[in-house]
Design a binder for these strands. Structure first.
Length: 807
DNA sequence: ATCGTCGATTTTTTT
DNA sequence: AATCGACGAT
């Protein structure tokens, strides 16, 4: 990540842009204006699917092509790294390798880049660690425990939520204390939590997610000369998804677009040997031009501090702004847009905006009400199979849901139906314990001040360093005012047993040795990330001890760690000069949508939040039920139901041609089953737009058109008995509930030996009798296609399907 | 210090 | 259903 300051005075400062025709080809008049307009600030209100990415990339390409700006003078902020990569690529297609020097990144990545360069200005070092939410919760947990704050009603999540909220409002401990009510003991306690938390972070040389933005703003405000460097550099700032910016992000943009006063400009450019910038009549460097793109109907991050006012009040905040509205939709059919418009028009305090298209009506929206979450999932699996057979690629199909917990039923059915799928977000690779452990080793050698990472790995693999020893080390560190890491080196002075002492010293010297390769003496190249990781893993016998374990899961864990090694190699390949810090940063800031791979050939499962900004040929919106969408937790929040409606709206507008809305009559949660009611939002869609295959009403009465797969389970041969058969258990002894719940997905049922051929009759526990029409695949992946007498056609993964041959 | 078991607690979305 | 913390046995 280099930071080259190029000479400023770009040619062609005057006159219109006179853009190349190719850049404007195929744009409608509004889009064209959004590309061509030049002025201090521009707000593009871009409805869903209105081609805003196209407009944004052409606008950037225009600035470069007309030589109004050098690449290095452009800062574009996107919502995900994926979107950033896509924008870079598309600008590259328009202007070639010029695109290299631009900053296109997320708020968080851009701030990390600035902070790494400038951290030394205010008590941090460039090797600072980024605490993700799990890390900061772990820290808060210690603090809450130490202070016994739970007696005042504080939980880790309430404290973390409150701190996050304050930081998003740019409040710090001092400013909060000024307005605090000191006669309220709970408030005093919170202040103490906040103070300790802040203190621990800075002692650990660490920032949490919110700090990345907030501290950058602080840096700019406290050090005008530092700020001047960036204000001078970035002449064109573009922000995507502006409706989801919070106050801190808004302030950051504001700071970056300020003009630089004459004296400071002179001083900074003189001191750094920089070319003299273009000045206005007062000798100041004018503020950068700002372009923001957003749609208040798609604001879905208020819970995270996103402030819709940022977009609503843009014209007031940035006087002389131009506002351009993009309403023509190039993505969806009119039926889908009609549904979206109808739903969103129920939010009253909005500027009226109606999406339209000339694509045509298209197919009706399909509705389905299942008897349970599994029934719903089965419907989705069946429809996906049909879509696939009619020529729709799996990668063009997505399934959305409100909460991550809903993936379970979907995954179970998808596995049984042998559908290739992938879950975006959810429990990520990097959240696995063994991966966090391995990462903590890397952090420990990158940032020795971080005690959290050190504590995590001190006893991984087992070295006999338990809580008691850890406390002793911490006490020693506190008494001698040194870091925990330093205390490890002094383990000999603690009077612990010889065995533990030896282990601690060995542990410390491994870290010291490897750290010497990370920060080598002047003139030598630092070690490669993969070499660093491998050195740590081999010397600590991390992988070896996992492989030696008798717990079967540890083998899988070892493989995950090997996978991490592969990730570091891949990283090194993509970034030949990438340092350990670059790697750690990249890992900390991956977003859910980032690991989306278009060529994957799998159905994508994700939350509605992750779906923002994406589009698919066919979309399944699941769990459209009260208490789920709108979610129960949103009911209390002011504006909650409206935000949930926008979430629904976002989901609908992701679909290009086909939209499926589904719900279930009963929904399992925390081990018990609850009755679910259709979402209020369903009624907001005009009835003629939806073709109900099984409507909520039909499902309630006895006239369902689909076979009652789950009723069959209850009435006929019960699931439990056939599973007992499969597992060859004595019939008299029913299995425990918890045991057979997992058998569906686990491999306890193993039909590998079952020989099936087209024409065979089979009996399925849920679907009844049917005839095999085809068998494809090999071994564990053998799939049977069965035409059931009453349940229709299904694809089944033979190995785990609850079926048997009948004569 | 470590391992296993029991019981309580979970309750949204994410950089 | 699954995770986490507390507690007791080795």
């Amino acid at each position: 990540m280099t930071f080259v300051l190029e000479p400023f005075d770009a040619p062609n400062q005057t006159g219109g842009p006179g853009l190349d025709d190719a850049l404007l080809a195929g744009l409608n008049p509004r889009q064209r204006e959004a590309v061509e307009y030049r002025g201090p600030s521009l707000l593009i209100v871009a409805g869903a699917g209105s081609g805003k990415t196209s407009v944004l990339t052409r606008r950037i390409a225009g600035l470069l092509q007309s030589r109004e700006a050098f690449p290095s003078q452009i800062l574009a902020i996107t919502f995900t790294n994926k979107a950033a990569a896509e924008m870079r690529e598309r600008v590259g297609q328009l202007v070639g390798n010029q695109a290299e020097g631009m900053w296109i990144s997320t708020f968080h990545s851009a701030c990390v880049r600035i902070l790494r360069r400038e951290a030394e200005n205010f008590g941090f070092t460039k090797s600072f660690t980024i605490y993700d939410s799990a890390d900061s919760r772990a820290l808060l947990k210690r603090i809450v425990k130490e202070l016994n704050a739970d007696t005042y009603g504080f939980t880790v999540s309430s404290a973390s939520g409150k701190i996050s909220k304050l930081k998003n409002e740019l409040q710090d401990v001092e400013s909060y204390a000024r307005g605090a009510n000191f006669s309220d003991p709970a408030e005093v306690m919170f202040l103490e939590i906040f103070r300790r938390y802040t203190q621990e972070l800075s002692r650990a040389n660490a920032f949490d997610f919110d700090d990345l933005i907030g501290q950058t703003v602080y840096l700019f405000r406290a050090f005008p000369r530092v700020a001047a460097l960036y204000r001078r550099r970035f002449r064109h700032i573009l922000v995507d998804e502006y409706q989801d910016t919070n106050h801190a992000q808004y302030a950051l943009i504001h700071e970056l677009t300020r003009p630089v006063a004459s004296e400071i400009a002179e001083e900074v450019e003189g001191a750094n040997g920089l070319t003299r910038s273009h000045r206005d009549q007062h000798g100041a460097i004018p503020g950068a031009s700002l372009t923001v793109v957003g749609d208040s109907d798609q604001s879905i991050y208020a819970f995270r501090g996103a402030d819709i006012r940022n977009i609503v009040e843009f014209e007031r905040d940035f006087p002389n702004s131009r506002v351009i509205l993009l309403e023509q939709n190039y993505r969806s059919t009119q039926n889908i847009l009609d549904a979206a418009n109808a739903v969103i028009s129920n939010n009253f305090d909005r500027k009226d905006k109606k999406l339209f298209t000339d694509i045509g009506g298209g197919e009706k929206i399909v509705g389905f009400t299942g008897y349970s979450g599994h029934d719903e999932a089965q419907f989705i699996a069946d429809e996906i199979t049909k879509l696939h057979e009619s020529g729709v690629d799996y990668k063009d199909i997505a399934v959305f849901y409100r909460t991550n917990a809903q993936t379970r039923a979907l995954e179970e059915i998808f596995i049984r139906s042998a559908l290739p799928y992938r879950v975006l977000g959810g429990t990520k690779f990097y959240e696995r314990a063994e991966i966090k452990d391995a990462m903590a080793y890397l952090i420990a050698v990158a940032n020795p001040a971080d005690p959290l990472a050190l504590r995590r790995i001190m006893n991984v693999p087992k070295r006999g360093i338990g809580p008691a020893t850890e406390t002793a080390l911490q006490r020693y560190a506190d008494a001698h005012e040194m870091s925990l890491r330093e205390a490890v080196r002094h383990a000999g002075e603690l009077g612990l047993g010889p065995k533990v002492t030896g282990e601690i010293l060995e542990f410390g010297s491994i870290l010291d040795d490897v750290m010497a390769t990370v920060y080598p003496p002047e003139g030598q190249a630092p070690a490669k990330v993969s070499d660093i990781l491998v050195a740590l893993l081999t010397r600590t016998k991390f992988v070896d001890s996992l492989r030696a374990s008798r717990d079967a899961q540890d083998e899988a864990r070892a493989e995950n760690v090997e996978e991490l090694v592969a990730v570091t190699k891949e990283f090194q390949k993509n970034h030949p000069d990438g340092t350990l810090l670059d790697f750690l940063t990249e890992v900390s800031l991956v977003a859910a949508a980032d690991d989306l791979d278009d060529s994957s050939g799998t159905v994508s499962l994700m939350t509605l939040h992750t779906a923002k900004g994406l589009e698919y040929e066919a979309v399944f919106l699941t769990g459209i039920e009260e208490d789920l969408l709108p979610h129960r937790m949103s009911a209390g929040e002011p504006g909650g139901p409206a935000e949930e409606r926008r979430l629904f709206y976002v989901g609908i507008t992701r679909a290009r041609k086909r939209l499926f809305l589904s719900l279930a009559m009963t929904r399992a949660a925390y081990g018990n089953v609850n009755v679910a009611m259709p979402s209020r939002y369903l009624q907001e869609i005009p009835a003629e737009l939806i073709d109900w295959r099984q409507s909520p009403g039909m499902a309630n009465s006895r006239g369902g058109t689909e076979p009652r797969a789950l009723n069959a389970r209850r009435e006929g041969s019960s699931w439990g008995s056939s599973l007992r058969e499969a597992a060859a258990l004595p019939p008299g002894k029913p299995r425990e509930k918890t045991q057979w719940a997992n058998m569906v997905t686990n491999v306890v049922r193993d039909n590998s030996a079952l020989v099936l051929a087209a024409g065979d009759r089979v009996r399925h526990v849920d679907f009844g009798d049917g005839r095999v029409t085809a068998v494809t695949g090999e071994g564990a992946k053998r799939v049977a296609e069965v035409q059931f007498d009453t349940a229709g056609r299904k694809r089944l993964l033979v190995k785990i399907a609850p079926i048997e041959k009948v004569e």
